[in-house]
């Protein structure tokens, strides 16, 4: 075939080059740079939420908004009723988020209200626990769930360090795992702020890109060092979470799990997973070798004892 047009030929070569480069990069993309775990920074513009516990007034509008937008059943105690603060609550299959009240050791009479929901980890334990890939960390940030493939093993609930996912134990035919999905499908993908943040009257919830929120959180702490403890909860915990908290009271006193460390949870089982192909590859050779040695020895024994030697004798009978 005659191309005639040199620009054409050039174009085509360019295309091939690009294709080869694309192919190469798709094969080697994880290796562009180091492959250490810490080197997966997550997508730069992923979203998050900053919770400023010094601002929260415990009005529970976030709970109502969440109930509303996620079409959850009515709560046993109405959202306006402050008596719920009498005991600690956790998220459950009918409640994606709860606000709890904690006494303020520094200022009596000014309790601290703590909103709890899925933290949307950067490296979620639940995602690495799910054997059917029903849970996914979206590139946008939220961790979402696909009930269509879930088999109901509840390993995600075992693995969550924050005690967040809940299960519909009373549902016999279509039980689902329930947790906050950060309004990923219903609002974020439509360019809307998650419902809880929309309804917060004091901007105790600030929605934005995680990196911007970290700057905001740090500047608030720096500008008011007396008002905040110097810790952004979620910045480094379990490898980082999409939800970030700043507070005037140390987090251990507010029911936050304090001993989580900064290792991303998928790292905890990675080593074991690497052992699996090792066994699959090494054991057959090792055991096969043992078998061949045994077989030879037994044939020799038999030859010595004068039995007729059967070339294909195995030990199976």
């Amino acid at each position: 075939m005659k191309t005639g047009n040199p620009r054409h030929a050039f174009h085509r070569r360019g295309f091939l080059k690009r294709a080869a480069a694309a192919l190469g990069s798709s094969f080697f993309s994880p290796h562009s740079g180091s492959v250490l775990a810490q080197d997966f920074p997550g997508r730069e513009d992923r979203l998050g939420m900053l919770v400023d516990l010094t601002r929260c007034i415990g009005c529970r509008r976030c709970e109502a908004a969440c109930n509303q937008t996620s079409s959850l059943p009515a709560p046993e105690i109405p959202f306006g009723d402050k008596s719920v603060f009498e005991e600690k609550r956790r998220t459950n299959a009918k409640t994606y988020t709860v606000v709890n009240r904690y006494p303020n050791p520094q200022r009596v009479g000014m309790p601290v209200y703590v909103k709890t929901q899925c933290m949307h980890c950067d490296e979620p334990a639940c995602v690495s626990a799910c054997l059917v890939g029903a849970l996914k960390k979206t590139p946008e940030g939220p961790v979402i769930y696909n009930a269509d493939v879930c088999i109901g093993c509840r390993y995600c609930i075992i693995s969550c360090p924050f005690y967040i996912p809940a299960y519909e134990y009373s549902n016999a035919f279509e039980p689902k795992v329930q947790k906050c999905f950060m309004c990923h499908d219903t609002r974020i993908l439509k360019g809307e702020v998650p419902a809880c943040a929309t309804e917060c009257p004091v901007e105790a919830l600030t929605f934005g890109k995680r990196r911007d929120l970290l700057v905001l959180a740090r500047s608030r702490i720096m500008e008011n060092p007396d008002r905040y403890v110097d810790h952004i909860y979620g910045e480094r915990e379990v490898g980082g979470t999409s939800w970030l908290y700043i507070s005037g009271v140390p987090f251990e006193q507010l029911g936050f799990p304090g001993n989580l460390g900064t290792t991303p949870y998928p790292m905890l089982t990675r080593e074991f997973l690497s052992f699996v192909p090792l066994v699959l590859v090494v054991w057959p050779a090792l055991l096969g070798g043992f078998y061949l040695m045994t077989k030879r020895r037994m044939q020799e024994d038999r030859a010595e004892s004068g039995e007729p030697k059967k070339p294909e004798q195995t030990l199976e009978a």
């Binding site: 626990a129 799910c130 493939v149 998928p266 074991f272």
Partner: peptide
């Protein structure tokens, strides 16, 4: 499902 429909190779439970 873990054998034929949807896979989570990062999970120990998958193994």
């Amino acid at each position: 499902y873990p054998m034929f429909v949807s896979f989570g190779p990062a999970s120990v439970m998958f193994l």
